[in-house]
Nucleic acid binder design. Structure first.
Lengths: 334, 334
DNA sequence: TTAAGTTGTCGAACCGGTTCGATAGTGAGG
DNA sequence: CCTCACTATCGAACCGGTTCGACAACTTAA
């Protein structure tokens, strides 16, 4: 493989001149520049990334740390990853994707060996063990999901409290007084997925304020348990006139369950959910829902990160930004 | 950040001694090793990845090139990516995931700047423009999907011809003489996704050999077109007693479409498909199907690649390996 | 005519590791 | 006691870039 030295020799200049011709950081005469470019083309020269990283202390790579839980409903994850990858590339960065089970250790390994210039965390839990590691790291960090301590990092998340209020309100004004709530899986609570209780607690609070009965269930994860559970719930709560579903697996399974039971939406039951537009299309979900905006969250996280990587000093205070929930009315309530 | 020089100074030895203590490539006295390790711990030293890459010409990173088509049914992709990431890590490699639209250019950029030691291609098309670039690269390459020219690369794919024969045969022995075939989307054919016509052509061939009527349709991609099309097909071919679906979006939508039409499986219609076990569970698909084994394919691709990276000479001939299709009988035929 | 830029280029140092060759010290074998 | 082999360590070179300081040649201003 051709090195900058080969180019220099072929063009009859010094290595530094080639470097300056490439970076434009010092002026180079037009003819020299021309000769250098010819040599580069002829030799097919591309700067070696490792050498450049060593010299500049910049890798132009972003570390993306994703938790994949085997027992979780995974297709939604991709909706975060792809926009992140796209935005990063637009800014000139590549993505090192890390999916190790032991997140903190992986993060330590990658960060301390200086493989990346910045770090994006997905799936952040309330007391996420990756956060202290991230805070120790030299690289700036940005994340999707709300941790308990947000010092020194940029945080992006949906406003789940407000989402819950919007949905309860949507049903309340239509006269519903008895509502089933399906929350995320039990282990999401256990693992500290704050969005789970932020949504649930706000929904319960809002319901109790208006004297609305609310039956809360932690959803199942996998088939066939999901279907079975939905049926059990519907059996147990015949008085409920509406359902709020904050659970991807459950809402994906709901159409067939309701269909099997002969329950019409919205005639027999009003249904609202919280999922992304893309997810809804994938599963053909006909339900009014709050949009979770995974692409906006992913994009924002990377953009904030890039700002800090480019200008570590001038990027301003660290911030927590909540995306405002928007409701999409698909006519599944009345 | 601490460098190997800092460690050396603190331990009172030379830099090379620290390096040898770490790599074990030369013998080091127990006490020196002890002092070095203490210094490493105290300083929190981790070797700089760029410097190491420069010195060893090894990055310990694998480039994973994925094509995401906006109009495609995406959740299946993750089933390849995760096992690949897992296997790579077990072998000590991290994953640089590249999702750029312009695959060939991205590949050239990454490969020629020596950011990775090896390359995995997903979604490989018949005349995939990434293949010639890969062949020029210094790094060995491995892929999932069958290209027209397999020189100099390792190829892994499901045996789609055999899969089609198995499914047709499964229906034939049960007496079906009129079968609907739903193939991948039209643009998969156009883009050269060989698996699409390999499956279709083998199915048609096998059907015609036995005088079975087969109605072939290229499926739609997104809702609500998918549902509409399925209904149209069923309207148009009332004489069909069975259906073979080689299309993720279509088979995911099929249960609700059949349910709406009051068509019972297998009483009114026999249905078989070709999808992964994981995909089937995700969408609660009750259909007999050939398993597509994305994890086995992903794992194999990485394993072959690792073998070549570790020992570029002794990894043997380049090979095309087809995974043998296994049928999972879920009782959706008779 | 000289002092003070400006432009274009070079050489050397540096980034942080790895690895080769040399060497001092130690123990065994003759 | 001498030689030989082996162990433990060091210094220097190298990987392939970037960047700083110096400097020659050429302008421009005084």
């Amino acid at each position: 493989m051709a090195t900058i030295g080969d180019v220099a020799r072929k063009a009859g200049v010094s290595r530094s001149t080639v470097s300056y011709a490439l970076s434009g950081k010092r002026s180079i005469s037009a003819e020299t520049r021309e000769r250098i470019h010819e040599a580069i083309i002829e030799l097919g020269f591309t700067p070696n990334a490792g050498a450049r990283a060593l010299a500049t202390s910049q890798t132009m790579v972003i570390g993306l740390f994703v938790n994949f839980f085997a027992d979780e409903f995974s297709p939604a994850m991709l909706q975060y990853v792809l926009p992140i990858s796209d935005v990063a590339r637009e800014a000139g960065y590549d993505i090192l994707m890390v999916t190790e089970t032991d997140g903190p250790q992986a993060l330590r390994r990658i960060a301390s060996s200086d493989m990346v210039d910045g770090i994006v965390l997905l799936n952040v839990a309330h007391n996420d063990a990756r956060i202290p590691v991230l805070r120790q790291a030299r690289q700036p960090g940005s994340m999707v999901g709300l941790p308990s301590n947000t010092d020194g990092v940029d945080v992006f998340d949906l406003d789940f409290e407000e989402s819950a209020r919007i949905l309860v309100e949507h049903l309340r004004v239509r006269g519903h007084r008895s509502i089933i709530l399906v929350t995320p899986q039990q282990h999401v609570f256990e693992r500290g997925g704050a969005y789970a209780w932020r949504f649930r607690d706000a929904a319960l609070e809002r319901a109790s304020r208006y004297g609305i009965q609310m039956f809360s269930y932690a959803g199942e994860t996998r088939q066939p348990a999901v279907n079975r559970q939905l049926n059990e719930i519907l059996d147990a709560r015949p008085e409920a006139t509406a359902m709020i579903v904050h659970n991807d697996a459950a809402i994906a399974a709901l159409p067939s369950v309701l269909h099997d039971r002969g329950i019409g939406v919205p005639d027999d039951l009003s249904v609202v959910g919280i999922f992304s537009e893309e997810f809804g299309r994938l599963f053909s979900l006909p339900y009014t829902a709050v949009e979770t905006s995974p692409d906006e969250l992913g994009r924002s996280a990377v953009q904030a990160l890039v700002r800090r990587m480019v200008d570590p000093a001038g990027a301003g205070e660290y911030a927590v930004r909540f995306v405002e929930p928007r409701i999409t009315d698909r006519g599944s309530t009345r």
